[in-house]
């Protein structure tokens, strides 16, 4: 906005208007456009961020004004086994979810990019889990993956396979939650990839088929490179989404059994609102924030070096 000011003020001088008043008018007009959004960012993001940082150096319980404890919260964190369990659980989610959503998202998008009867219906089907609320998805999946009464174990028994612990098993619960998370979110990757595939120049695809390229060659050498910017975007988006995983934990397991499904954000919520240690919770939140920032910046640097992003 400021960069356009010299040009506009020159024009103003041509009309012999007082330069300052015109500049003021520009400022008012500019801020009336940018103001509401700036206020929202300032009020709901920047101020809470600064406040949370201040909170992380106190022993506040959000009820009484806390004492300043310096770095004690951060030191406690290094020795907190639940924090590391939450890190492992969340890390597992990211490592499994990102490749799965990218591969499945692209394959499904390719399948949906055809002219068949009722394609709109099929496309909608893949997006419905994404728009369903986490509460209903969580309750529904909680019943499906129940150890003793769930449909999943019923199916396994019909197939002659042994029953599994699923959500009742500390070693399986996080994998089950990852699967549920995948089911609710990967529709987004499908939509983004589908849009990108439809943007690919038809002439290139025609040329490829005239040159006798197989379907696999077309996929590997035209589609995959063409959608690479979307892959970078979906990776970054997916990492943020997975690192902030909370709602399904709340509605399916509450972090149990035996902390097997505690994620970082769920742990932050517990610390602040169940254990009344909001200062400590803010410290964990800040570690998550800095970690996310480092991951994303690193991701963009790698992508830029590889020439994916301009």
């Amino acid at each position: 906005m400021n960069s356009t000011a010299p040009a506009l003020s020159q024009a103003a001088a041509g009309h012999r208007q007082p330069r300052d008043r015109r500049k003021l008018a520009d400022n008012v007009a500019g801020w009336s456009f940018a103001g509401p959004a700036s206020l929202i960012i300032l009020g709901f993001s920047l101020i809470p961020m600064v406040w949370a940082l201040a909170l992380s150096f106190t022993d506040s319980d959000l009820q009484s004004p806390g004492q300043n404890v310096g770095l004690a919260n951060y030191r406690a964190l290094v020795a907190d086994p639940v924090f590391f369990q939450a890190l492992r659980n969340t890390g597992l989610l990211v490592v499994l979810y990102i490749p799965a959503s990218l591969i499945a998202g692209l394959l499904v998008a390719v399948l949906l990019n055809r002219k068949v009867r009722g394609i709109g219906f099929y496309r909608t089907c893949f997006l419905v889990p994404y728009i369903a609320s986490a509460t209903s998805a969580g309750l529904l999946m909680g019943y499906i993956f129940d150890r003793d009464f769930g449909m999943m174990n019923g199916l396994l028994v019909k197939l002659g396979l042994p029953m599994q612990g699923l959500l009742s098993s500390p070693s399986q619960a996080m994998y089950v939650l990852t699967l549920i998370f995948f089911w609710t979110r990967f529709g987004f990757a499908v939509v983004i990839y589908l849009a990108a595939i439809q943007e690919i120049n038809k002439e290139i695809l025609e040329a490829a088929s005239i040159d006798g390229a197989s379907r696999w060659t077309t996929f590997r050498h035209i589609i995959v490179p063409s959608v690479r910017p979307m892959t970078v975007f979906l990776t970054v988006w997916g990492v943020i989404d997975a690192l902030q995983f909370f709602d399904l934990v709340m509605t399916t397991t509450k972090g149990g059994p035996a902390n097997a499904t505690v994620t970082i954000v769920y742990y932050i919520w517990q610390l602040a609102f169940t254990y009344f240690t909001a200062g400590y919770g803010a410290a964990v939140a800040y570690v998550l924030f800095v970690g996310t920032l480092v991951l994303i910046v690193a991701g963009f640097l790698i992508a830029r070096r590889k020439g994916v992003m301009a």
Partner: peptide, 10 residues
């Protein structure tokens, strides 16, 4: 004992 892993009062 049915072990209830859900918070939904199953």
């Amino acid at each position: 004992l049915y072990l209830d892993s859900s918070p939904a009062e199953k």
